[in-house]
Design a protein around this nucleic acid. Structure first.
Lengths: 197, 197
DNA sequence: ACAGCGAGACGAGACGTATCGTCTTGACGG
DNA sequence: CCGTCAAGACGATACGTCTCGTCTCGCTGT
């Protein structure tokens, strides 16, 4: 029933992932077809369906393969500056129309398919968010963040608005916007200023 | 070329919207078909395609018709309490599996189709967000919010994380979570506490 | 008479399955 | 060792199904 990964043809696997990325770049996600991927890769359709659930799973796999497993944030000691850099980088990615369109398409796919969403979350999203969390932990130990702050929530406080605005097209995504979010979040987590006044 | 709205059959229009909502409740969004809507409404497919771009537009129209145009938030004078109530209500909506599934499907449709997204934004999302903004303006005048806070950003700071967690299934959506977001945001916008200590 | 209407046929395109013969792999016996 | 063999993945492709969106009918109401 279930195919044995041992006997899997690595060459075909690579050809499929490569073909998928090529076609994605050429035609865009919506026009992407399992049949086209198979044809480009010189592979039977069944070979794709044997190992993946559909084109979404293939693309996700291809993207996740390209992503480094561990990401680390810069730590200059200045939390605000470091966060600004991260959020500005995210804004820049969303500003590139081609990259943005692709990311949007994949994201949509993961929203519709729960299993795909779990994969995307674990392999693409979580590493990013976790890197920010690590940076926040360092800031907390440095006394720049309230000890009682729920850092997972803080991370979402940073990225949630960005994704919200990007996905729902709810306004322009600019560096100023990113900076504003960072300022608000920093204000939210900064320890009581009663002493520093 | 373009149909004349004057000659439009109001009865058919209502039947289509009603049938769409019925079928949505019965079969769920993915299984929803233009053909099925037409059949249920006792209407030709062309009549649907003449006035709408597809099933997404029909459903969006049906939903927007049901939504009150203006929403108002409670104003008890206690900003934190009022915001908690709103976010908890949102969490409750997302917690209902049936409603959540429908909302998710519609949302996905609006993410993929720019024009549909614009309509959803203006007719469904914006009124909600704006109601919160109005409440924040009142709070600002009451001196509970820093005068320089960008209120649009604050609103997104409230809902962004919620949508983020819901759409991407990035963790459980509980009242505690909503309360935590509110606390963080209130902390972010509260005027300098140097006096209050 | 004209434009929207209900009804439904239609072509296009993508999906996912099934089947064919071929090729690779690993186990077993002489 | 090495030939044989079964299992199973492979490329290729036909197939039925589904949904879409268009097109073509008369019919109806104004």
């Amino acid at each position: 029933m279930t195919p044995q990964p041992t006997r899997r043809n690595e060459q075909s696997r690579r050809a499929i992932l490569a073909a998928a990325l090529e076609l994605l770049a050429e035609t865009g996600y919506p026009a992407l077809t399992v049949e086209a991927i198979a044809a480009r890769a010189g592979v039977g359709k069944q070979t794709i369906y044997r190992w993946w659930r559909g084109k979404g799973a293939v693309i996700l796999d291809a993207l996740a393969d390209d992503v480094p497993e561990v990401v680390a944030l810069p730590d200059t000691g200045d939390l605000r500056a470091d966060l600004r850099q991260v959020l500005r980088a995210t804004v820049a990615e969303f500003a590139d129309p081609r990259l943005s369109a692709t990311t949007r398409a994949i994201t949509i796919e993961t929203l519709a398919d729960e299993e795909l969403g779990a994969q995307a979350r674990d392999r693409l999203l979580r590493p990013q968010l976790n890197a920010v969390r690590v940076r926040l932990e360092a800031a907390r130990e440095a006394g720049q963040v309230r000890p009682d702050a729920a850092l997972d929530q803080v991370v979402e406080l940073l990225f949630g608005p960005l994704y919200h605005r990007w996905l729902l097209r709810n306004g322009p995504l600019t560096d100023d916007y990113a900076d504003g979010i960072v300022d608000l979040v920093v204000a939210a987590v900064t320890p009581s200023t009663s002493i520093r006044g």
